[in-house]
Amino acid sequence: MSALNAPPAAAPLRTGDGAVPRSRARGWRGILTHWPQYLAIAPFYVLFLVFGLFPIVFSIVLSFTDWDGMGDIHFAGLSQYVYLVQDSRFWNAVANTFIIWILSTVPMLFLALVIAFLLHQNIRFRGIYRVAFFLPNVTSMVAMAIVFGSVFSDTFGIVNSALTALHLDSVPWLSSSWGIKVTIAVMVIWRFTGYNAIIYLAGLQSIPTDLYDAAKTDGASTWQIFTRVTIPLLRPIILFTVITSTVGGLSLFTEPQVLLGDAGGNGEAGMTIVLYQYNQAFTQFDFGYGSAIAWALFVLASVFAIINWRLLSERSETPRRPRTRRTR
């Protein structure tokens, strides 16, 4: 979620338009002729090479070795991956990650959609609401974890105080397996609902108002307009938010780390894949295994990317609905 904040309205891929005929003067001579341009774009590529590509490639190498981050690197073959497949702590982390992802994404996107729909109406102080809903996204995570730690505290928290005041049983939010997962999911929802609502709002603004007018003329209720007009036209944007939420959900780290510490809480109920990777590499100094976990996550993310891509391409085969204008 935090990783991607590109504008949602994906520009349609242009293929074949303005393709330059292949010039024979490609290669080094072309580079030398256009050196100022190449120089201008070089900083990004140099930085990417050093801080992006090299670590990525090196982590592949590391995942086949045994290294404590300081001494000699020993080649270990596939042993890290063999250990990974049999490691119940890893599979626990995978399960936790997916449970928290579902617990957070489904209510978050639904809430975001409803909030965006309400913000799109002609209501007073719209600007203030929009800012207010986006604020959690730019709040410090550490401060937020302390607040959530207090709010959901088992014995002294405001949530449990409220529950007992209503003569309900208090819930061990931060010590039971499900309590921990729900609390982390609530943190994610709190932080990213506003962000997704703003994206939906941008999508809503691109829907031509004459469609709503036509629906109203036909006597549609607000609910009908929402489900029959708004949602279908928002589909590409919903898909975008689902994809970003998937990326964010699979790489969930900060929330459990600041809330529960490096060990992932009682019974490792809040241990996510990335937290486990961090734990192995940077607290146990087992960089080979940490790298193997990272690549296992890459495989999992790839599977999800393929599923998403399938969903997307299926959508484009269906007859095109009224064109949505580019937002912003």
């Binding site: 302390i146 730690g149 207090s150 505290s153 088992d154 014995t155 002294f156 931060l174 010590s175 809330l259 529960l260 510490g261 060990a263 809480g265 009682n266």
Partner: peptide
């Protein structure tokens, strides 16, 4: 034991402050 781990500092502090 109270069963409140180190990671939940706020709870621990509240426990020591209140005498719980």
């Amino acid at each position: 034991t109270a069963g409140i781990p180190e990671a939940r500092k706020t709870d621990q502090n509240a426990g020591w402050s209140s005498g719980k």
